[in-house]
């Protein structure tokens, strides 16, 4: 076992891990941060997307040891300081961008990474950026709409509801 220490959502998190322990397992099992989900084993579904040193990564495809010393942000740390939903989260609720909620943490984390680099993405840019995030419930319509709304764009022309 190796001790790892990282900053997760602004707080120090440490624990003993095996070489094979994935970052997703460390977050879920060790830290109890079960908002990071695991939906596949081939690094495609994106339910496990978190930010490591500010960049979106798939926590199921990174060894926990590799995150030693890193700054990690997960869905649990996304809300505003007063506990209210942040702009992206709020847009997902306002535009019904989630149904079962399982892919949602990864979607929100990917959306946050996108908007950081590209504050006003086009529809095509949003869709392309979500290539590594699979949703089976929403047909993506309201996810794309929510992300565009979160970027401050007027989405009223996109089919209602």
């Amino acid at each position: 076992m190796t001790q790892v220490k990282m900053t997760v959502n602004g707080k120090t998190a440490s624990g003993d891990v095996e070489g094979r322990t994935l970052l997703a397992q460390f977050l879920r099992d060790d830290q109890g941060l079960t908002g990071t989900h695991v939906g596949c084993d081939t690094s495609q579904c994106g339910a496990c997307v978190v930010h490591v040193n500010g960049q979106a990564v798939k926590a199921c495809t990174m060894l926990a040891i590799e995150a030693d010393g890193a700054t990690v942000d997960t869905i649990e740390g996304q809300a505003n300081a007063d506990g209210s939903l942040n702009v992206i989260q709020q847009a997902f609720q306002d535009h019904h961008g989630l149904q079962c909620g399982f892919c949602t943490p990864g979607m929100v984390m990917s959306a946050a990474a996108l908007l950081k680099d590209n504050p006003k993405p086009t529809e095509a840019e949003v869709r392309h950026y979500l290539d590594g995030n699979i949703c089976r419930c929403t047909g993506y319509h309201n996810i794309v709409k929510a992300i565009m709304a979160a970027s401050g764009q007027d989405v009223s022309a996109i089919a209602a509801e």
Binding site: S43, G46, V49, V52, Q55, A56, V57, K58, T61, M62, S110, A113, L114, Y129, D131, G132, N133
Partner: peptide, 9 residues
């Protein structure tokens, strides 16, 4: 290549 999260690693 791949998707954004894959490209970051």
């Amino acid at each position: 290549i791949g998707d954004p999260a894959v490209r970051n690693r």
